[in-house]
């Protein structure tokens, strides 16, 4: 073992290293006090330099972000000639032009992309907007749009009624360029209270659950979904129930706590079962209960007893080969 390894620093406690080394300014010599002041001055200068650097960087970044005229001059950009819109929905270049309302001859570099993005998102139909300058003169607008899942009627102050659309995330918006047939196929939303804010409406709470039900119905049971007219959220908050009014059935109660797929299968079974009855036979179907599905009908028990029994198996797979429940 070398000599270096034989020495160890004294353990903490009664070691000279625990002796307080600082002395009061009075106990310092003139040179010592000068050195101390110099050290403070150096520290203060270093802090001041650091602060100045940070401030300078902030000013630079701020001016880069705000002083568009200077930036435009710096990069020699041209006036915007074209706006290219790339979207996954139905919005068009014309719509973008109208919304952005760029003054003629605006330089590409002078555009305030942040404010323009805000305007695009303000329409409600746009979920994500990315604006990019494509030098020398093109503005590229990439959009991701919301898809409506239901319609809504809102009464205006002048007494007129306005049709609005509701997206999966509950956002309420006007909707532009949608196919009218598609819109006509959407169920109406009921039992919601629209809250206005800054000329827009607050998102509707609980729409995620409703959207999930509607999407599943549309996908798995389109023959049922087609007949749905109104979806009510009046009991969603208090009882976790979504009430649907269909063409033939006045009230179908779904529970958001139960598996929608199972509830739709039960509804499908009920609808198939009562098909033999005089139309419209069913008043309400309650799918919110576990283990049983109460069905209210127009017919009396005596009338029902006289009817012939159902002539299909209760096995869904045998009943409808082209449907998978």
């Amino acid at each position: 073992m070398s000599a270096t390894e034989q020495l160890s620093p004294p353990a903490a406690g009664r070691s000279w290293r625990n002796i307080r080394q600082e002395v009061t300014p009075l106990a310092m010599s003139r040179k010592g006090r000068f050195r101390r002041r110099l050290e403070w001055f150096k520290g203060a200068t270093a802090i001041a330099l650091l602060a100045a650097t940070v401030w300078g960087a902030y000013v630079l970044v701020h001016s880069w972000a705000t002083d568009r005229a200077a930036l435009a001059a710096a990069v020699h950009s041209k006036p915007v000639r074209e706006i290219v819109v790339i979207t996954d929905g139905v919005l068009t270049q014309k719509w973008a032009h109208e919304i952005l309302a760029l003054p003629k001859g605006t330089s590409l570099m002078a555009l305030d992309l942040g404010a323009m993005k805000k305007r695009l998102l303000g329409s409600g139909q746009v979920r994500v907007a990315v604006l990019a300058r494509s030098f020398p003169d093109t503005l590229v607008v990439t959009l991701q749009e919301r898809t409506p899942v239901a319609r809504l009627q809102a009464g205006e102050a002048d007494g007129s009624v306005r049709q609005l659309l509701v997206a999966r995330d509950g956002v309420v918006y006007d909707g532009v360029n949608y196919d009218k047939r598609m819109l006509a196929s959407l169920p109406w939303l009921d039992g919601v209270r629209l809250v206005g804010k800054d000329g827009k409406y607050e998102p509707i709470a609980g729409m995620a659950d409703v959207s999930a039900l509607l999407a599943m119905a549309q996908l798995e049971a389109p023959q049922l979904y087609r007949d749905w007219l109104i979806v009510s959220l009046a009991r969603l908050e208090g009882r976790d129930e979504i009430v649907v009014k269909a063409q033939d059935i006045s009230e179908i109660v779904f529970s958001r706590k139960r598996d929608y797929r199972k509830q739709l299968a039960q509804l499908d079974y009920v609808v198939d079962s009562v098909r033999v009855l005089p139309d419209p036979a069913v008043i309400s179907v309650n799918l919110s209960l576990d283990g049983q599905v109460p069905v209210r009908m127009h017919n009396t028990p005596d009338e029902l007893a006289k009817l012939p029994p159902a002539n299909f198996s209760i096995q869904p797979s045998q009943r409808k080969r082209n449907r998978d429940f």
Binding site: W16, I19, R20, Q21, S29, G32, R33, R35, E39
Partner: peptide, 19 residues
Amino acid sequence: HGHEGKVSDNIHVVGGYHL
């Protein structure tokens, strides 16, 4: 080991020069 006061005196002489 050494006398704590005398050791610290030595150290403080250097400390008086702000070292």
